[in-house]
Amino acid sequence: MQSDVTVQPEVAGRGGVRVLRPEFPREAVAMARRFGGTYIAGASWLQPVWERRQSRPSYLVALDPGWPGFRGIEQDEGGLTIGALTTLDELASHPLVHEHLPGLGTLLDQVAGPGVRRLGTVGGNLCAGGDLSALFLALDARLHLVGHHDPKGESLVVWDAADAGFDLIQSVTLPDASPWRIAVDKLGHRERFSPTRATVASVHDGDRLRLAVSGEGGPGRLSISEAALNDGHSLSGADRIHILDTELEFRGWRDPTLRLAIQRMVDYLLAEVGHVL
């Protein structure tokens, strides 16, 4: 399927890394395919990975925040569209975010440190399955992708970073959530600057409830538990606990004590968004 891709061996030293600077997004995709290059934006997540294994891609394909639609936040009837190269810091301080997602600033205070948030991008955080993933999944975010073929939209819920090939995220659109009730909570190892153990987001749109997680077990919507909560009125509390626990375990959350924590965080967040059990 990717037969025209030349995969280059990794290099040990930084001196062997070549940085390609395409002029427009489609060229970036072409370069990445041709050289087996790695897209690079803020590089705040990838560089620690490379330092740790003392090995780096031979080719980096630099993404340019100046490309139209790749940076900044805009509002239209479809909701908020956030350029993928918008930094986490820009996201946290943007007036539209304060207006529509007032809790996001508090969450972002707990994402990395301020210096890293000035480098790290929204797109990078989603690719890494970071803290934003849980919230954006629960909000039913849609990605706008630039790929080898025509630009396309895709729901974040079905998108898989590991299977995204050379598709490039241009932006992400969150539906107009102003009337919705949103609650999100992060469990880290310490108060700030901790990798997420579990970030849990709960969204109630007045009709339906949505739940998502990210962290040690990976990002994902908890759609079975959602269904149980939305439609399973005949289910007992024990049933719902069992369903959530099973779903988490199935999704890769192996630590039972962490599943217990998520269970309790979910209960708390459900109360926060006004979902009556």
Binding site: E51, R52, H189, R190, E191, R192, P195
Partner: peptide
């Protein structure tokens, strides 16, 4: 644990 992203010492807020 091999670096300060895994070995976690207290921050200002801790």
């Amino acid at each position: 644990r091999d670096n300060l992203d895994q070995y976690l010492i207290p921050t200002f807020h801790d």
